[in-house]
Design a protein around this nucleic acid. Structure first.
Lengths: 137, 137
DNA sequence: GCTTGCTTTAGAGTTCACTCTATAGTTTAT
DNA sequence: ATAAACTATAGAGTGAACTCTAAAGCAAGC
C-alpha cells in the first residue's frame, strides 16, 4: 500500500505519516521500501496507526507511544512490565471518566441555573448562593 | 490575594496566570490593581481558574473559553444560546466517555493476551488471531 | 540601610504535533 | 512523449500553551 492510500484510509495526511515514521513509531514490519524508494505499507501499519490514534486520544504523547512500542517491539520490557503499564493506563482512564462525570454534574447545574434565570431569577439567585464553586455564574 | 498566593493555591505558575490574563480570561471581577500596581486577585479568580481547568480537561482551547466567558460576561449571548453550548459540551463528554469505554476494552484484551502469552503461548496465538484489530503489532 | 524576595513589563524561547514548501525523481494516462 | 499525479528529501513555518529572561521597582526581615 502506498503512502497516499494509507493516508486516505486512515484520515491522515501523507506528511503526518512520514512524520510519525521520523518519530520512530514504525519499524520494518510496517514499512518497507520498493526498488524506486517508495514506501510500501503493510496492514500492520494500519493497525499501528489505529493504536496511535486510540492512545493519543487518552493523552499519550508520541514520545510515550514510541517508548512503549519500542519496548514492545524489542522485548526490552518483561510481560509483567507491559501489563503494569497497561493497568496504569486503565486507572488513568477510570480517573478521567470520573472527572467527566463531575463535569457533567457541573454542566447540569449550569443548565438548571440558566433555565431558572429565565423563569424565576429570584430562585436562581438562591440556587447560585447554594452552589459549591461549580459554575462560571 | 497576590499572584504567588493564587499560583500556589491553584498549582499554576505566576507566568501562567499572567498569560491567562493577557489572553483575556479575566476581567475586573477577578483582578484589580493596588496603588503599587501589584495585581490583587479575588475569590472569583479562583473560581474562574477552576472553570478553566475543568473545561481545558474537556479539550476546550483557551480561545474557546475566552469566547464563552466574554459572551457570558457581557451578555452577548442569550440564555438559550449558552444552554445550547452547554448541552453540546455535554454531548461531547458523553461521546468521550463512550470512547474511553472502548479503549478500556482494548486494554482488557491486551492484558488478557499478555497474561496468556506467559502461561499458554499457543492459546495466546489463537486469541491474537481472533482479535478485531485492537492490540499493538 | 541592605539584602532577599516579591512584583512589574516586554519580549524571547520552548515543546508538541503537525503542516507546508521547494526541489527533484517516478509512474500513469492520454 | 508529455503532462498530471504521485513519490522522495530536507528543512522551514505554524499555532497552542506555556515558560523563561532581563531589567526594573517595591516590600519585608534583620
Amino acid at each position: 500500500m502506498k503512502i497516499q492510500e494509507l493516508a486516505v484510509k486512515m484520515g491522515l495526511s501523507v506528511h503526518t505519516i512520514r512524520f510519525y515514521e521520523k518519530e520512530g513509531l514504525f519499524d520494518s514490519r510496517h514499512v518497507q521500501r520498493e526498488k524506486n524508494n517508495y514506501r510500501n505499507y503493510s496492514d500492520e501499519a494500519v493497525e499501528r496507526l489505529q493504536m496511535i490514534k486510540k492512545f493519543q486520544g487518552l493523552g499519550c504523547s508520541l514520545a510515550e507511544l514510541k517508548e512503549i512500542f519500542q519496548d514492545h517491539d524489542t522485548n526490552t520490557k518483561t510481560h509483567q512490565q507491559i501489563i503494569d503499564w497497561i493497568e496504569q493506563k486503565k486507572a488513568e482512564i477510570e480517573q478521567k471518566k470520573a472527572e467527566y462525570d463531575q463535569v457533567l454534574e457541573t454542566l447540569e447545574w449550569m443548565i438548571a441555573y440558566r433555565k431558572l434565570l429565565m423563569t424565576d431569577p429570584q430562585k436562581a439567585e438562591t440556587l447560585f448562593k447554594a452552589r459549591t464553586s461549580v459554575s462560571p455564574h
